[in-house]
Nucleic acid binder design. Structure first.
Lengths: 243, 243
DNA sequence: TTTGGTCAAATTGCATGCAAGAAACTGCGG
DNA sequence: CCGCAGTTTCTTGCATGCAATTTGACCAAA
């Protein structure tokens, strides 16, 4: 992908996730081109990229539609993500944790401790927590040294509300968020312990449950509340339908 | 994707898998266009599709190169595929196997029995076995009713030599192929048994091991033999490097 | 009122053309 | 003989234009 195309794709993706287009709304390429202020060709290419990412549905000679995701699809994706991370954890544990890998994970834990002691009420602290969490999960997957896992996880993370950074938001919004953040942090700590002790099965179980709790939180958070207002500010929240 | 683009993409993918281009060879879009007998635009679009599938590497302003896969990458992909199918099996077992789902899987088993009793030496029987195997694995994934798993499995199957149909070829080429086919068939039988008995953990273990054996066969089959000649006829075999 | 057919406007799919950037070549100096 | 800068050639990236297909409206007939 060239530079201009990359920019156009990013802008369009953000616009879709921000809810500039309603779910199932047809996307005409002239309109997209005008919105993005690019040529029709670039708009078209960007749309084809987003089609392959799964954000748009495209039918031959009938253009593109914004794809809406059901709550079940989101929860399913989170669980699959957890299964893949569980596999990564198992592989790392079996192979043994390298010094550099251990350091990277440990740095995330230290950062988390620091943030928890300072309180995570402010926007800055929340952003820092999200970045830390993303870094922890990325490091784990990279440590597994298995490109297929990386590819699959990246693919899933393209879905709205299914990435590691999106998952975390639930914890802030749920009641007793500080407790939930501590629980998540505890999972991470025990994972690192299991990895160091080469306990592959335990490490996998921890990650699976870590994701399962996320999926459940997501269901509760979006499903039980009468609407999606609680998810305001979450990229892609408007694309989720509760049926 | 429109019809013409679909055709062009398929033709180019087949050409690459057939070894029409050497690994790491640069692909110029005029040459591709002439080979496929389409316009430069279609060639370009097809190349961008194959880039997203992972078959081509693209650098901005520098065109595309054919991506070569190491033996490890292939084996890794097969193992991840197995992990995803294991998850699918667990989900199906936990939820309970529906009548239609059970019938579809059972039909594959009956077909397998039939083929085994007739002998699988001929090309026709081999093709039938491959189709049966593909159908069995597809049915399992579909029965899990989890789109994220479907997407991830499809993504992995795009890699050369990592799909369910490619995996099977090992069994034919290995020594004592009839025995190996029976073993694979036995895995399938025990899987269906576990699914019916709602033994999720057992079902997952069967699928994981099923894939693990495939990955090992692949390593032996391609790695131990002094070259890739044994894989002749396998789509994508030429893209694998042994280093 | 509904169904079916025809035509026009809109929209996508594809080809061609042009400009910007990269690779290759040539000639010069060390 | 080797390295380097200027120039040429080639290749990709993008815009525009045209043809094919779809969509929607309008009208007639049952």
């Amino acid at each position: 992908m060239s530079v201009q195309l990359e920019a156009a794709t990013g802008a369009l993706r953000q616009a879709i996730l921000d809810g500039a287009f309603a779910p199932d709304e047809r996307l005409r390429e002239v309109a997209v081109a005008e919105t993005l202020e690019v040529s029709r060709t670039l708009a078209r290419l960007a749309m084809s990229v987003l089609e392959k990412e799964g954000l748009l549905l495209r039918e031959p000679n009938r253009g593109s539609r914004v794809r809406a995701f059901s709550l079940k699809e989101i929860a399913d994706a989170i669980e699959v993500r957890g299964e893949l991370e569980a596999m990564a954890a198992r592989l790392v544990a079996e192979r043994g944790l390298g010094k550099g890998q251990s350091d990277r994970l440990q740095a995330c834990l230290s950062e988390a401790e620091h943030l928890l002691s300072q309180g995570v009420g402010g926007a800055g602290a929340r952003a820092a927590w999200v970045a830390m969490n993303q870094s922890f999960h990325d490091s784990l997957v990279q440590a597994a040294d298995n490109r297929a896992i990386e590819v699959a996880v990246r693919q899933i993370s393209l879905l709205p509300l299914a990435s590691a950074s999106a998952i975390i938001f639930d914890l802030f919004d749920a009641a007793g968020s500080a407790l939930q953040l501590r629980r998540s942090h505890d999972d991470h700590c025990r994972l690192l312990d299991a990895l160091g002790a080469r306990q592959g099965s335990r490490a996998a179980a921890i990650m699976r449950e870590h994701a399962f709790r996320s999926a459940e939180n997501r269901r509760l958070n979006l499903g039980n509340s009468s609407n999606l207002a609680a998810a305001e500010g979450l990229p892609g929240a408007r694309l989720v339908r509760l049926d």
